[in-house]
Simulated scan of single mutants.
Amino acid sequence: MQRICVIGGSRYFGKLLVKRLQAAGHQVTVINRGSTPPPAGVEHLVVDRNDEAALTATLGSRTFDVVVDQVCYTPVQAAVSARAFAGRTRRYVMTSTIEVYDPATAAMAAVPPGTPVPEEIVDPATWLVAMDLPWHDEAYLEAHYAEGKRQAEAVFTRAGSFEFASVRCAHVLGGGAQEFTGRLAHYAGLIATGVEITVHAKALPTVFIHYEELADLLLWATTADFTGPVNACSDGPLDVHGLAAIIAAQTGREPVYRIVPAGEEASAFSFDRHYAMHNARAKELGYSFSRTTDWLPGAVAEALTIEPSPSA
């Protein structure tokens, strides 16, 4: 049994992670702002993780074996947590994102299309951190989501007071109504009702992961001993046409496409730039992934039970 603290953990795969940590026999503490209580038997600390004084006071004399941070989006938040948990934990795991590799959001080494992107393309040990940017502004943060994650990883990597690992997760699907992006249900609705899907002329593939598999991987990451970033994605990239074909097989309706001009935004999961991740490092460390095409039909079936989206 380990003492594990989860920051966030109130919805989707974070909520499932808390349940699986508890089922595995760990002593679990959840920190959030109190909107959603954790399961019975899980300690609940209600505090704003952005308020360093309140966070430190709420933690009191508690110490943990591992902290899993589900809701860190900026270097400022990372710095607050790095100070608050210094001397309180031996390991810190942050949930990060595939978006850190998006070449449209930062200058980085180019990876040829068709070559899966490895972790070293974004090295948090050398990434520039700028604390004075308007990270507190919600509009700025939304527009700079990927950079906020990159810089948060960089702050934790350099903190030096605990082992640090980041899990860079692919596009997360599954869970029906639980799926907080609603993108799969959106696509299912478009295809089922014959509404056009806007796509790029040469749509490039991306990678996905089922929300249950991501919860399992995070559970594994809490008790593993690796440090640094690890990519989390199921085997088998898909482009928007491959995704739509699997949905079409469930709906019995063929997708209707409209190609957008170069440079114009298309539907989610149609990409005109390459940053599909490589999951070799996680495999080398001992984690085995499912294939996207094995679980996606079931996730589509769940999504089809949700009210279809009216727009493309």
Rank of each mutant, 00 (worst) to 15 (best):
L204W: 01
E163R: 15
A201G: 11
P37K: 08
D69K: 09
E265G: 13
A154Q: 06
K202G: 08
V207Q: 12
R20V: 02
R150G: 02
L59F: 08
P118S: 02
P261H: 08
E179D: 15
V67F: 05
G298H: 06
L296W: 01
D102S: 06
Q250D: 07
V66K: 01
M277L: 11
A110F: 11
H210N: 13
W295M: 08
I31T: 04
R11Y: 01
F226C: 01
S234M: 05
G242F: 06
D132V: 12
H278T: 12
T95I: 14
D225C: 00
A244V: 05
I98W: 12
G87V: 07
V93G: 12
S309V: 14
R90K: 15
G14K: 06
G8D: 02
Q2G: 11
V76C: 03
R83M: 01
Y140G: 08
Y101P: 04
T206H: 01
Y101Q: 08
A276I: 10
L238E: 07
L173M: 14
I121Q: 14
A192V: 07
S234G: 07
R273D: 04
Y92E: 05
L296P: 07
V129R: 10
A301P: 03
D123V: 01
T56E: 14
G41D: 06
I259F: 06
E153L: 08
R258K: 14
R91D: 13
D216I: 01
H44T: 09
W220L: 10
A299P: 04
